[in-house]
Structures are given as structure tokens and as C-alpha cells.
Design a protein around this nucleic acid. Structure first.
Lengths: 207, 207, 207, 207
DNA sequence: GATGAATGAGTGTTCATTCAT
DNA sequence: AATGAATGAACACTCATTCAT
């Protein structure tokens, strides 16, 4: 794992915010330098180039999204409860890292930059495996239906959140959420519970 | 409704592809001009500016997404069948307009440009109303559960698709889809059926 | 003398105002076309080019500044009265044609354009000759001093006016002139009388 | 007072010449860069923009036109001699700064740019005060006539020079001045003495 | 190790003019 | 006779990056 010094981390944090708000191409290194209160040349000096800064940022953020889940599954709780827990955890994590998710969503969709997304793929694969093991467990217990397309569950969880987040102002209006705190609460409570209900309905009842 | 001539439409189509592939800021007017085989000055000449070209593009595409649904609901089919139909229709439409959805997803998420998204909001509101009326019908017939958060259904439908599309190369690999046709077929069959199953499970069984 | 049609004259008038206000290089043919409510192509069509429009404008305006003076000097009035009259006439004429003078002042000072200023030179030479004949008359009568540098009299008359006009806002403030009418009146009365007094003092008393 | 480095001064000098010769709008930053043998980007880099370069130039030049006069008036010479000195000084100064005067004359006459001309106004006001004090002194001594419109004296001095300078080629021809040195000498000797004679005639004899 | 100075390439836009009709 | 459509060239400016210090 690469170690970053204080100034590098400052740059990374500023860059993350700006890349999320303005897009990668919409952000200039001067913007970053100004907001991070460092010299323009520093970005190239520390990270090599603007593009490599993005790469460093992705690595930096995704290394955070490690395997903090595993311990949860030591607990002896029912598969249904595990599903509830994992969904709540996912949504919480995406919400905490929404800037990064926003950047990735955009970057992954363009053909412009060839960034090494291995780390991100690894995280996704890991998540998928956990989900698969829980569902297998539920199916073995006869609680979940067979023939569940597990690969299509993360899109429901992540996609729902991202879609709402991308259309935030529309949903703020639609759902009558007046403050940022209202929004946060809606994500944590209403959206989470909605997604849990949805996934569980699929797992338990659909045929 | 604004009419565009042949060359303007050519420019709009080229711009749509490039904006989707490279992002708005990642696309130069020279790129557009070169690909559309027109003079650089034509973009300003026809649309006023790069930004107004985007605006024209949004209007141009969204005006397509009219009310083609309504007639479906004249038919005397069950609410469940209507849900199936509307989901298939939505996914098909987003898939056909995926470039525009990709552009909008990005543009809506950045704070950079102030574009008039009224038309897009109107489409979303219209969709929501249709969905609400179907669900109301199902609830009145006792087929659907009460207390359905209708506002959160489009995020599941659209979000799932967009998420897969944004992470296309990851899912091509994961789902072992080798050709573009395979991908198209997966969207039309597997994803659609998965989302239909999911939504119906939620509507019918969840409590 | 070239004849201009109605639209051409409209263009010339608009161009004169704009060239005076914004400078030749600061005025675009589109500005002219818009203000004259004609097609952009018309400027090239009627005048050949933007530069030739300027040339046409100069000719058009200067042909106005003909020999309207001569008759004045038929009158049997004293040389001093003639000086008064000619100065008043000059200032009045420059004031009426101040847009053109402003344009010429600028154009003559730049090396950019090679315009045929023959007509303007002819007017200046003609003015000078009149002045010379009056002064000769006064000197012959012993009223004016000998050794008057006649060539340097027009600079005093024209230069004073132009300098004030160019620094209009400064002098409006300094001289406490509140309206456009105040300014006009100051030019016609105070400035004119001041210049008359100055020139006459030079002619009569200086040695 | 802002300090400029060597290259900035080089740019300022080149810009001054070009703005005077070709006008502000007639000069491109590329012209300036080429003549100053610097990169185009440097103009923006050093001055922010083309317009700010002009502003910097005005400030740079006008800060030169300080209060170098005052000491002259410590001397115990007659008001008439003071008038001679101040006129010679003014003409000399305008002549030295004729490029800047040319630029200002043009810029002040157009409505295009909003530049801070405070410094220039201050110089003019200062000049006017000096002139007023000398004339007051002469009037107190009974040497000068009362009722002198002091505000209209600078227009005679400056206007005469500027008018000749603007119509330089006409006057070169008229006054049979063959070389640049002839012109310089004519300004320093003949024009200066002519203006001195004129102003003094007005001050001493006019009523 | 860190940075101010500098730059070539590229940005979106406007320009005066041409040309087919 | 008159013009809408079109364009190559030029515009002022910003970009990410380099390099001497």
C-alpha cells in the first residue's frame, strides 16, 4: 500500500470533491491546486500527472472499502437478517463514498481514460461472493427461492442509490426533503428499508 | 417543436455519441466537427455555443420520449401484466436512449452547467403517474400490497440498467457475454425478466 | 460624385455612429448589419468590403464639407470679423461632423489602413487658403501682426475642440455641464468665444 | 506602485507601440507576443488579459507623469516666464509620451472599455491647479488679464500638439519637414514657441 | 524537496467574406 | 438585385506540464 503524506492527502480530498462536482475534464489542476492551497506544479510533482492523480485517488479510496464485512458473518443470525445487514451496510458505504462512486460511474462510462480498476473489480467480486454465500445458505435452509440471479442484485442496491443521488434535486423535490439532513435520513431509513424489502421479496417469494 | 435540418441532426447525433463516450467537457467542438464532417464554426453557427448544442440535444432526444405508453393501458389486462409491460417498455426505452441517459446522468450530477431539464422532469413525472395509477388499480383489486413507495420504483428499474451499463465491461466479463448482441439479448431478456420479477415480488408479497 | 441608395445611406449612417463609438476594428460588420437592419452580406455586396465601406463613408461625409465658406468673404466686413466668423463656422462644422472627425482622428493616427484621404486633404488645404487670404488682408491693413504661422492656426481651433470632445466626460465634470444641451451650448458659446479671443489676441498683439 | 520585471516591461513597450500604431482592437496578442519575442500565453500569464495589459500600461506610463513640475515654481521668475516654461514642459512631456496620449485619446473616445482613468484624471487636475496658481499670480501682479478661462488653456496646448501629431503626414508635407529630426525640432522650437506666443497673447492682451 | 516561471498545444468563439440561388 | 448558408482564418484565452533553481 502506497503511503501518502499530509499534503498529498489534502490534494486527494480536494480532487475527489472537485472531480465529483465538476467531472474530471471539468476540473483543472489549477482548481485543485487553488482549493488545496498548494502550488500547481505539485500535482505533477507528487502524482506524475492529472490522470495519475485520479488513479491514485481511486486506489486510495477503494483500499478503504476493504473486507470489513466478514466479521459480520461470523455471527449466528438468519440469512434474512444477514441480507438486511449487508444491504444496510452497502448503502451506508456507498453513501459515505458517494463522491468516489460518482467519479467512478462517470469514468467507467467513458472510453477516455484507461485506468487500472482492478482494485474496484476486486471489491465488487468480493461483495458478490459474500452475497452468494449468504444466499446459498438461505437456499440450503429452504428460506430463499432457488434460481436467484445473484449478479443482478448489486445493480438493484447500488443502482437505486446512485440513480437517486444523480437526480438528487428531482428527488428532493418529489420526496419533499427540505434539508441535507432530511436527505441523509431518507437514504438511511426509507431507501434502505425499501431496498431490503425489495430484495427479500425477490429472494423469498419470487419464482 | 424546433425543426432541425439534415446537417444539424448529423451534428446532434455525432455530439450525442461523443458526449456519451467522452463526456461533455472531454469532447471538443473540433472533435464533433471532425466526426460530423462539418466546419468547426458550424456548431456555433447552428447552435450558438457548445453548451446550447447540449441543450438542443437534450430537447431533441427527450421530445422523442413522449407518451407512447398511454395506449397500452387502454387494454383490459391485469395490473400484473401491465407492470410487466411497463417495465419491459422502460428498459427498452432507456436502452435505446442509453447515450442520452448516460449524458444526463453525468450532467445532472455535476453542478457545472445550468441546463433546462424541465422536459426531462416532465417525462419522469409522467412515468411516475402511470405507475401510480397501475399500482392503485392493483391495490384496489387486492392484488398488490398497500403502502408501496411508488417513487422508489423507477430508481430500481432505471438504476439497475444504468448501473450495469456504466459497468458494462465488468458485467460482460461476469456474465460471460461475448458479443454486443449477447449483451443486448441479456438486457432484453434476463435483466428485464429479473427486474419484472423483483418489482412484482415487492408489489405482491412484501409487507 | 457617387450616388448612394436609401439602404446604402442607412448603412453609412449606422457605420459612422458605430465606428465613432467603438472604433473601426471594434465594430463588426454584423453589428452594422444588425443596427441597419440589413443582411450581413449586404455590406460586402454594396461596398465591397468593410474597409471600402469606411472609405465610402469618408468620401460621403467630406463631400458635404465643401466650399460653403466662400460667399462669406464676399461681404465687406473687417478681417477681424471674418476671423470671428470663420472660427465660429469651423467649430460648428467640426461639431456637426464630430463622428467623422473622431473616426478620422483615429484612422489617421494608425498605420493600419491605407485610405485615400485626398478629399480630406483638399478640404484642409482649402480652409488654409481662406485663412491665409484673410490674414494677408488684415496684415495689409496693418491690423494683424506680420510673421503669423498660419499653418499652426487650424491646430489650435480644431485641436481644442477635439481634445475637449475626446475627454468629454472629464470636461463635463470640470465645467459642471449637466446635460447634452449644456455641452452643446458651451461649445457654441464659451469655447467658440474663447478660441476667437485667443486667435485674435495672437493675430493682433503678439510679436 | 507595481513593479514590473524586464520581460513585462518589454511587453508593455511593445504593446504601447502597437496600440498606438494599430489601435487596441487592431492589435492582437499574437502581434504583441511576436514583437516582444515572448510566448503568446505570457500576456495572459503576466497581465491576466489583453484588457488588463492596457490598464497596466496606462498605470505604468502615467505614474511617470508625476509632479516633476513643482520645483520649477520655487524659482523666483516672472509669471510670463513660468508660462513659457510650463508650456515647453507640457509639450515636451506629451511629445515624449505621444504613444500613450494617442492610445488614451482613442480609448477615451470609445465607449468600449471601462478602464480606470483615475490616475490620468489626477494628472490633469494637478496640471490645471499649477496653471491656475501661475495665472492667479500674474493677475495679482496686474500682468495678466482677469477673466481667463483656465480650463480651456490645456485644450489649446495639448490639442494643438495632438492634432498635428494625428495628422503628421499632412503637416510633414505642409511644413516641408523631411526627416524625423526635422519634425522633432519643429515641435520643440516652432510649435512650442507658437503656443507660448498664443497663450501669452491671450493672457496679456485679450479682454 | 519543492516551486515560480514559462510554454506549446488546444479551447470555444467570432470574424469578414464568399457563393449558390 | 439580394441573401441565407457556410467557412477558413484568426481571435483571446486556458490547459497540463516542464524545468531551472
Amino acid at each position: 500500500m502506497i503511503e501518502f503524506n499530509e499534503k498529498q492527502i489534502e490534494i486527494l480530498q480536494v480532487a475527489e470533491q472537485l472531480f465529483a462536482d465538476e467531472g474530471f475534464d471539468g476540473t483543472s489542476v489549477r482548481d485543485i491546486a487553488k482549493n488545496a492551497q498548494v502550488n500547481v506544479a505539485m500535482i505533477s510533482y507528487y502524482f506524475g500527472s492529472k490522470e495519475k492523480l485520479l488513479e491514485a485517488l481511486v486506489v486510495y479510496r477503494i483500499s478503504d472499502m476493504g473486507l470489513q464485512l466478514e466479521h459480520l458473518f461470523q455471527e449466528s443470525i438468519s440469512p434474512i437478517e444477514k441480507i438486511d445487514k449487508i444491504i444496510a451496510f452497502y448503502i451506508q458505504r456507498i453513501n459515505s463514498n458517494r463522491c468516489m462512486y460518482q467519479i467512478l460511474h462517470y469514468e467507467l462510462s467513458t472510453k477516455k481514460r484507461e485506468i487500472n480498476y482492478e482494485a474496484f473489480t476486486a471489491v465488487k467480486n468480493n461483495n458478490l461472493k459474500l452475497l452468494q454465500s449468504i444466499i446459498k445458505e438461505g437456499q440450503d435452509q429452504g428460506v430463499f427461492q432457488p434460481n436467484i440471479n445473484v449478479a443482478l442484485l448489486p445493480p438493484i442496491i447500488i443502482g437505486s442509490f446512485i440513480h437517486i443521488h444523480m437526480n438528487k434535486s428531482y428527488y428532493l423535490d418529489l420526496l419533499n426533503l427540505k434539508t441535507e439532513a432530511d436527505y441523509e435520513q431518507y437514504i438511511t431509513n426509507d431507501l434502505t428499508s425499501h431496498v431490503q424489502k425489495t430484495i427479500k421479496a425477490l429472494l423469498v417469494y419470487a419464482n
